[in-house]
Design a protein around this nucleic acid. Structure first.
Lengths: 184, 184, 184, 184
DNA sequence: CATGAATGAGGGTTCATTCAT
DNA sequence: AATGAATGAACCCTCATTCAT
């Protein structure tokens, strides 16, 4: 039967259940049952339950980290920042369930024994699209641009309209905020 | 000793612990110990653990519901919407720990058997500050205004600056987004 | 309001609930709620939960004990024994719920720290309607006469027919068994 | 050590304790301790405490159901009915502790979410040894025959005499009652 | 690769009971 | 005669985890 890919299947099912019910309320029994294997089988692939979560966490943060690293290597210009927003939106949409899960389970994820937290990465990211000596209003605009992308990925599904149109509009507003901040 | 206020004290300690570690990872034993009473005492005041959470949830949503009701009774004008933002920001800052907790434990709160969910209230709220026939960009601006206030309450503590200045700036950006949307 | 009779009301409600759900599964909370008083109030009238049960037990065994005592004072004749059956049937029907409860909760009642057990009384009673030197078949007939009365009180409700007719028939069969035993 | 038979051992110990103290008063801790395993081990074999009871209940009712089914397939004759009594007595003696337990814990067993109740089976069984158009006295005789067997299994241990003799006498009385009913 | 069987720790909950008022 | 508040013990149950096979 399906071989070798078990590790991935576990992660997939885990994400699905974690996202639906939260990490703590999802038991390994549930995951195992949905995969039609025994709990013990999970332990062949992951040392602990937290390990499954950490795996997911890394899948999520890798693109963020890459984006951050890339941005750091670029000139601190408006153009770079525009590109950061574009790429961040793409990442967000690409891994929406993962992002959503991390947002909705921050309380859990915060305690994870794993390098930088999600929030720390957000701080880094926002730091990259603004200058500390900007006027406060403009700093807020830059941060708002990032959160607009978040809203776009997680909240805009509640608004009528063509998905692509919506994401275009979201990006436009975000870029606009950025531009306003840099105009001042 | 201190009597009569036990119910409130339970809720206070619970919020503190829920916020810190998440709802599921906080045990009633912990709450009881911190209050120096037995677990059973908690059950005299709340029928179930979830009931404590529901109590907190209501404390949070009451101001939101009042705001929503108030807004519904006003003319759908820019002025009303500006006032909504002002009041929402005030509510947000007033009950920051509660709001933060609800955001960070959405997975848990979502399943709560309690009237409208947090998200449903957000939808109502955003619906009140925009018109469905706005251009998509402008709808996004209005939603972004709300999320800017959120960012202001939860994320801006990571930015240097005088708290009051920061909140002023946050409100300004939010109002600005609203105005842009209504200018179009 | 209703005063003085609270003790009785507690016993009534308790019997009702004990009979319906069993003693162990009935909590004092339930009893108190159904009476619209607090649990603590029950403790004014009964020292413990078991005390309520003991009260009920005595209400049940008093008629049995009286019957046993009466029979002991009579000549060990067929006539006496016929009268025992008649009186036992009357007692059975009079306190049917109580008897039924005792039968259905023997496991609980057995441990009661209270003089003779229900079973011991049954042994006494059967001892009174037979002679130890009867042939075994006849001893069985006498015991069977008693159990016929039980069946009459608790099981015959499942048989079609006029209640009075049924009880008459039951007594007739019981008396008949007794007579057969004494004829031999 | 002894493996594979754990499930059976749990059921054995459970019956012993349930019979001795009643179902509700027997805790899983007790069962586990007597088996020298942990409580959790019980849950590997039974989904719930009630499940253990249901297991026992089925062990008890299986022979009854088989007997009922068999009887239904036979002609409604006196001979069949005699055989029913014989087989029922055998079943009763075979599974005496189980029967005794069910009788003494009817209050508990009644609520069991499990097909037919014990009482319903008794109704079926008595229905099989009599005709609805018998005179009432004769219907009672047939029912009494069944209850005589019960008395034989549970109460006759309190009577002096050789066990086998006693059971023979019991069956004789039961058969006699049946015959009298059919003679009329 | 995976299972069957089991464990230890802890969870939420309920209970009978107490006692100051 | 009854209540409000609380307790201590026990309960059933679930969980993540282990390990021999």
């Amino acid at each position: 039967m399906a071989r070798g890919n078990t590790r991935q299947r576990i992660q997939d099912v885990a994400l699905e259940l974690f996202a639906e019910q939260g990490y703590e309320k999802t038991s390994l029994r549930e995951i195992a049952e949905r995969l039609d294997v025994t709990k013990a089988a999970l332990y062949y692939h992951f040392k602990t339950k937290e390990d499954i979560l950490i795996g997911l966490f890394h899948d999520l943060t890798r693109p963020m980290d890459e984006l951050i690293e890339w941005a750091k290597a670029q000139p601190r210009s408006l153009e770079t920042r525009q590109e950061v927003l574009r790429r961040y939106q793409a990442a967000l949409l690409d891994a929406a369930p993962l992002f959503r899960f991390m947002q909705e389970n921050q309380a859990t994820v915060r305690e994870l024994s794993v390098g930088l937290t999600f929030k720390e990465r957000m701080i880094e990211l926002t730091g990259l699209v603004k200058e500390p000596d900007f006027a406060m209003v403009d700093q807020v605009r830059c941060i708002s641009a990032i959160f607009t992308l978040h809203a776009g990925a997680f909240f805009m599904q509640n608004v009528e309209g063509d998905p692509e149109d919506k994401q275009d509009a979201v990006l436009e507003v975000a870029l606009d905020l950025l531009a306003q901040a840099h105009d001042a």
